[in-house]
Design a binder for these strands. Sequence first.
DNA 1: TTCGTTGTTTATAATTATTCTAAAGAAGAT
DNA 2: ATCTTCTTTAGAATAATTATAAACAACGAA
Lengths: 136, 136
Amino acid sequence: MTSKQEFIEKLRNSSLRPTKQRINICEVLFNRDKTFHFTINDLFKLIKDKTGEKVSLATVYNTVHAFHKKGYLKEIPINSNQTYFDTNVTDHHHFFDVKEEKLIDLKNEDVGPIEIQKSIPGKKIKSVEVLVKLED
Amino acid sequence: MTSKQEFIEKLRNSSLRPTKQRINICEVLFNRDKTFHFTINDLFKLIKDKTGEKVSLATVYNTVHAFHKKGYLKEIPINSNQTYFDTNVTDHHHFFDVKEEKLIDLKNEDVGPIEIQKSIPGKKIKSVEVLVKLED
DNA sequence: TTCGTTGTTTATAATTATTCTAAAGAAGAT
DNA sequence: ATCTTCTTTAGAATAATTATAAACAACGAA
Ligand SMILES: [Mn+2]
Ligand SMILES: [Mn+2]
Ligand SMILES: [Zn+2]
Ligand SMILES: [Zn+2]
């Protein structure tokens, strides 16, 4: 499998040694066609389901945070009891289906350019994110 | 004081009896010129500081949630260890100063109209919020 | 007013996501 | 192979939030 080399590269770039556990995490995170929105708990369960091997919760947290810090994962700002992450690290916005507690990507063209007309002295803009909440 | 009557009205509208504790909470929340962004913990401390009387944390949580449910408070979607609320319940967007952990209002005209071009069958838009993260 | 009812406050316990710890194990360098 | 450094893991610690239940206060009818 060619993807394993990519996983190892991602891990090394994040200053992480490529261990069996971390490869399994990568398998679930990055071996996909579409973007993946998840909580740590989602990921934790999926690792067991998809790889058949259990990885400790602490390792899942540590690895996700390292990837997030390196920019391989994006954190989505929602008020939920759990933190949501996204494998799509490009600039993009989201629908949040409040009932289903599911995130859906919005393409930038679905929202249009957003120009912030105000500025705060000494501060610069780090990110601009739109969250569209959906109800039935 | 004329504002006390408004507090009582807000409480009644939220199906809450006007107690001394809740009036004190209202005093801190609503007796202001500018919008107020806060966490429960901010509010809890401010009540003691501003009114000299202690209100239990449970009461602060309960009252804030009742006001939120009724629409007298807005919850701001940020990933933080604590939930942020806002006394400005109009549609508006925010800067979030990541270092200072402070919210700043953006007027709608500072952002411009946002048109969402995508729709999800069976769902309608409940809110559209922009969060602009600031760094030094 | 007084009394009964219903709602409220509070200390404290429970819950839960996340982070920390430290011991045992694995990876990498020589 | 050996040594060093990093990693995994179970379990403990932390911290925000929610639940509990007993003492107390607001309300409305009598
Ligand atoms: Mn993070
Ligand atoms: Mn709430
Ligand atoms: Zn996304
Ligand atoms: Zn605001």
